[in-house]
Design a protein around this nucleic acid. Structure first.
Lengths: 259, 259
DNA sequence: TTGCCAATGATTGTTTATGATCATATTGTA
DNA sequence: TACAATATGATCATAAACAATCATTGGCAA
């Protein structure tokens, strides 16, 4: 009370300043700096995390800025890493021995690629530089579909992928997506990316979509699949139950990984 | 506990920094740097490995960046990186604006790719994972020829490359080689690798071979080009003068980079 | 004043991170 | 090859941080 900082907004502003300056703050440190209890600081941090102004970690919080100065791609993997990991764990059950599978460039799919790096006896076809790099030193047979490098997604896309894909047979294709809505189905940002996704879907016996719950109900620019073209959707347990139910009614097998 | 770094995120950030700077870190070294137990460091490293931000190895971890960027596989011959660099410098003179060029998987060629990463206005076609990784964040247009991953050379090879290459036009192809002899021409270790090299040569208007002096007079298993199929050979100044002279007489333009 | 409300602090049981121990696996060396 | 040295993963105990709950405080209006 003596020199305690009264207003919540005032404290949070100060926390943000410290975060910006130091990158990391501890609960304990903040308590001392503002003469308030740990409970209050935790509430403030939870609030900041909720509003996307900081990232809560055990013991304190870290600046989003320090996460953001890395390549665009790594951010995506960092943000909902836990959900993506659990989605990947679930997806692994759809990989059978001696299958040939396709992995595209989504971050959940990349998490799956890491699990697959320890397998043998399957064939991985991919258009993702990151997947190929993950499997570069060891892992199952790896075939990369050529094409033009799209830097933002680190994938190879475009019409050049066609002649190569047309010669391949795929058991299961695992695909990420940017948006998934009941009206427009599966959508992504780039037409060239969508083109390649459509080719893959056409050649795969089964298609499994990996989409964390933030993708549900979203729409992006370029359509690449209708709902009924993709047999299985794996998402996380935070998924909106109403949407999941309606998708199920439309014949999509929806799997929610446990968090 | 005294000056131990408290937050896991903070430690991992620091580990990544060290990895970026040094390429390799050891558990012991990290324990000392942050005053925590080996168990904690191992957990951090396992976490980073899981998230694809580092690669765990016995005794510590290595940077993923270095795995893809560093030409670790070229010093069995004892040829210094400096010579390969000077060969690459020389080769750069054969790249003209608005060209489309091919870069294969040799280590001298990789050195050339690093120089080209700062250029614009050309198109790079490659079958090398390392070249693609080098150009992944920025650089000229990059097209990767698909195929099956050959781990030892980190290239994509085999019959699958054919449909893709057959649609492309190449101004200049820059190629490494394992052996180069007057009797057998250019040779490499792997038939699948040779197959792809032949395809490229057939589609390129000019071919420039990059071969450090240790390759001259050597022979490997699989033939991919006759001497007269490759117009220019760039080697280093330690090259055997007699061989160089005889090659020149056979119509090959031989360039020796200055050390 | 009285009563209400929002914010804070304290208490509780639970979860998470850490370090120590030990059996096993890996690496380097004779 | 066999051996020694080291690194490792698994397990457990401990301590710290946590979420949930409830009590307290102080401000404000009727």
């Amino acid at each position: 009370m003596s020199d305690a900082i009264g207003l919540a907004a005032e404290r949070q502003e100060k926390i943000r300043k410290m975060l910006k300056r130091e990158g990391v703050v501890r609960v304990e440190q903040l308590c001392a700096a503002m003469s308030v209890s740990p409970a209050t600081i935790r509430r403030d941090l939870a609030d900041l995390d909720q509003r996307g102004l900081a990232r809560r970690v055990h013991g304190g919080a870290v600046s989003l800025q320090s996460v953001l100065d890395e390549p665009v791609f790594d951010d995506k993997t960092g943000i909902a890493a836990r959900e993506k990991q659990s989605i990947a764990d679930e997806a692994l059950k759809y990989v059978k021995n001696s299958d040939s599978i396709f992995l595209d460039g989504g971050s959940s799919v990349l998490a799956l690629a890491r699990l697959i790096a320890d397998m043998q006896g399957i064939t991985v076809v991919t258009n993702s530089l990151r997947v190929a790099a993950t499997l570069s030193s060891h892992g199952p047979r790896c075939i990369l579909v050529g094409g033009e490098l799209r830097r933002i997604s680190q994938t190879f896309v475009g019409p050049l992928t066609e002649p190569m894909l047309s010669g391949l047979h795929l058991d299961t294709a695992f695909m990420g997506t940017i948006g998934l809505s009941e009206e427009n189905g599966y959508t992504t940002t780039d037409p060239a990316e969508a083109f390649t996704k459509r080719l893959v879907i056409a050649r795969a016996r089964n298609v499994v979509a990996l989409a964390d719950s933030s993708k549900l109900g979203k729409e992006s620019f370029s359509h690449f699949a209708d709902l009924n073209q993709i047999g299985t959707l794996i998402t996380d347990s935070s998924a909106d139950a109403a949407i999941v139910k309606r998708l199920s009614k439309q014949g999509v097998e929806v799997v929610c990984s446990k968090t």
